[in-house]
Write a protein that binds this DNA or RNA. Structure first.
Length: 259
DNA sequence: CGCGTTTGACCGGCGC
DNA sequence: GCGCCGGTCAAACGCG
């Protein structure tokens, strides 16, 4: 709703904070195998900020949203959701608990840093935690190892004479047997790479829609192959083409913010 | 044939 | 500058 970047950031933070807990009922399906609810989940979570970031300048029009799923199988009857927000030097943490059956999504994080590799995410979180001191240290990303990547893709945007634009990115971690979760969009695989010090390859996907350059990558976490890291870059310039079953609600434009 | 995947080549950034 | 490494290209291939 707000066009100014500073205000936009603030607005979004508040939104996430209040929205997560009610939606936790959707989360169990997120981690288990085929989750067609993935899209619905994000439709609810994504801030209704409509346009906002259009053509905004390089640094601030990109957002990371990270969802970790580590305690998926840990607590069967109740779980706590931790929302940790970070902006600049400020870190705020919100923890909520609720009761549902089945596995849960535990933490959802959003960062303004340029992160989309999971290793970078953890690294940044640690750095930030270290500098800002206190705060709830309840999210223990036990292992973070160094991976200096994720920045490279940005820089090649400026060639072709185009303005350097940072596409919005976010990634999340799920416990899943299936590598590629169904998010409602059609993807075409355009590459696969073995990453150093990992046994599982990383796959690169692009949205099949014309004039839509959204990319997606999927990989398994080296430390725990049960985990799948899904990363998105860019915003879709269209609605999900997968199916036209808009029984519940048409995905408003807010969905385009991330997808 | 149309469309998606596979897979090695290629490219650009970065560290040494 | 060279070699490593991650991201992308594209020709070959597979499948309906």
């Amino acid at each position: 709703m707000l066009n100014q970047q500073g205000s936009f950031e603030q607005q979004e933070m508040g939104f996430l904070g209040t929205l997560i807990p009610p939606n936790m009922a959707l989360l169990p399906q997120l981690g288990c195998s085929q989750s067609s609810s993935l899209k619905a989940f994000f439709n609810d979570i994504i801030p209704p900020t409509s346009s906002t970031v259009t053509g905004g300048d390089a640094t601030s029009d990109h957002v990371n949203l990270m969802i970790s799923h580590e305690t998926l199988f840990s607590s069967p009857s109740s779980s706590s959701a931790t929302l940790k927000q970070r902006e600049g030097g400020i870190t705020s943490t919100t923890t909520t608990t609720c009761d549902i059956e089945g596995p849960h999504l535990l933490s959802l994080q959003r960062s303004s840093a340029n992160l989309w590799a999971w290793g970078d995410v953890n690294e940044s979180l640690n750095n930030n935690k270290r500098s800002s001191g206190g705060g709830g240290g309840d999210i223990d990303h036990h292992h973070h190892h160094h991976q200096h990547l994720g920045v490279s893709a940005l820089k090649m945007k400026k060639i072709k004479g185009r303005r350097k634009v940072r596409e919005p990115r976010f990634c999340f971690k799920t416990m899943s047997d299936v590598d590629v979760l169904d998010d409602g969009y059609k993807w075409r695989k355009y590459g696969q790479k073995v990453v150093k010090n990992t046994q599982h390859p990383r796959s690169y996907y692009r949205c099949t829609q014309d004039n839509c350059r959204v990319k997606k990558r999927v990989e398994r976490l080296a430390e725990d192959p049960r985990m799948v890291i899904t990363s998105y870059e860019g915003r879709h310039a269209h609605s999900p083409s997968h199916d036209l079953d808009q029984d519940s609600q048409p995905p408003s434009q807010l969905a385009n913010f991330f997808w």
